[in-house]
Design a protein around this nucleic acid. Sequence first.
DNA 1: CGCTAGGTTGAATACGCTCAAAGATCGTGG
DNA 2: CCACGATCTTTGAGCGTATTCAACCTAGCG
Lengths: 268, 268
Amino acid sequence: MKFKLIAYKSPKGTLPPLIKKFDYLYPLNNVEIASLMKLHQYCLHFDSKKTFLEAGDMHEKSYIVMRGWAFRYELLSNGNQQIINYYLPGDIISPFAAVMPKTNYSVASVNKMELCVFENDELIELFIKHPRIGLYYGWMLGREDSSLAEQIVRLGRRSAYQRTAHLLLELFHRLKIVGLAYDKENAFPLPVTQQLLADTLGMSAVHMNRTLKKLQHANLITVSFEKIYLDDIDSLKQVAEFENTFLEQAKSHLLTGFNGFRNIASSA
Amino acid sequence: MKFKLIAYKSPKGTLPPLIKKFDYLYPLNNVEIASLMKLHQYCLHFDSKKTFLEAGDMHEKSYIVMRGWAFRYELLSNGNQQIINYYLPGDIISPFAAVMPKTNYSVASVNKMELCVFENDELIELFIKHPRIGLYYGWMLGREDSSLAEQIVRLGRRSAYQRTAHLLLELFHRLKIVGLAYDKENAFPLPVTQQLLADTLGMSAVHMNRTLKKLQHANLITVSFEKIYLDDIDSLKQVAEFENTFLEQAKSHLLTGFNGFRNIASSA
DNA sequence: CGCTAGGTTGAATACGCTCAAAGATCGTGG
DNA sequence: CCACGATCTTTGAGCGTATTCAACCTAGCG
């Protein structure tokens, strides 16, 4: 697959979502922002529903999601697929490409996407020049580890009803951080089909449909056109036993407790 | 919790399992081995069935498993637990502690364990001094990411029978790398109870028992005292649709394709 | 206007759960 | 050395959640 690379142009006055996320964790200095901008030089554009990374192929580059959603999945021989996780704006696809280019998983777009590509060598240079950025990167990986762990708990030990509530809450919180949720109305754009939600939560599309209906009848959510309202977040959290430790508490810690930042000066 | 720290003594002529694993990926030089040994200075010992990291507590240190098995889990309000992953010798517990000390998860020992503790600052210093070690660490994190992804696919889209076969194959392969499987007889020590296996694969202990029986009657495995034989690996792989890409193919790549190692000299 | 993709609903079925009780194994203390 | 308790394993029976299959509905698009 060949795609035209287009220089990335940040809309006036806004930072790319990855930088926004890092800055949300702990303010970046200008040198660091400039260095991170170098990862945003070239963009790819994809249509919806395209598998752009195939299982078994070498994944030798990493991608930053600028717009749109993607997901990582595995296909099984009976035609079923399991979605492992979603990539939202600000997330990095194949963050381990530098050291683990071969994987069992494919990655596909949900809707129209804009991605920035960067090379392994750029990333490694960045870490050497700016050790602090390595810490941000590590923090991001740690969040993703937690996110996969949550997905495991959802699939292993929660009912379909709880699973669905739990996933919706997680997506809402992740989108909020990059400014893509409708904060005031507790809603967010949900571009995925019920079939994809079912493939995410290990259930059939039929049962996904019934479960969403049940959540609506309980006045917990409202589903409108590609947009979902969390009408009663407290009840949803209770139903799902949702803990957002890994999404919210992480922030305060690096601000207060961690002294690695003080010992290690950014070398620029 | 306070524990006496005991200096780690490597048995004559053997390397600690973490170093063995790294060296298996790509040979380490003596300086790097010496640096990694510094992470092995202090040991903790735990009895079996002790939760030594509690959900919600600060996880400010990382631990290298020297002997024994541990697992990361989440407890739910109905008393059920979901095991997220196992930590085998050579694995690092809380590898993101440096940047993400607060988590939702607890970690407990399966059997008697020996762990080496190290501080965040030591790790970050190591990365700065020896960038190559950062790559090994990243490779290890990438494998763990794949391992969690496999667990998600198991739980989401495989039957109890397939799940069980798949997990056993993964454990066997991971133990082989650190030299803890009985290679010739295709067997390995399995110190966990059927209840824990059930908690790993999101099923009841009763059904776990029936599933193991079914695998035995199909002549795929033999369970003896804390030891399990994979009598027919090919059939097991077929049943489970087991792909070991992430465990075996990763090796050859760094040996041949990756040039980051050539560009970046270890600075010692 | 008809095609296609996605959503909705019903009915029969199956996989795995819960509850319950009985074996097996092991460590401990009498 | 045996008895006892604790933990783990095994087996049976009834039940429930979620699946499968099938049909129909709906909305967007060429």
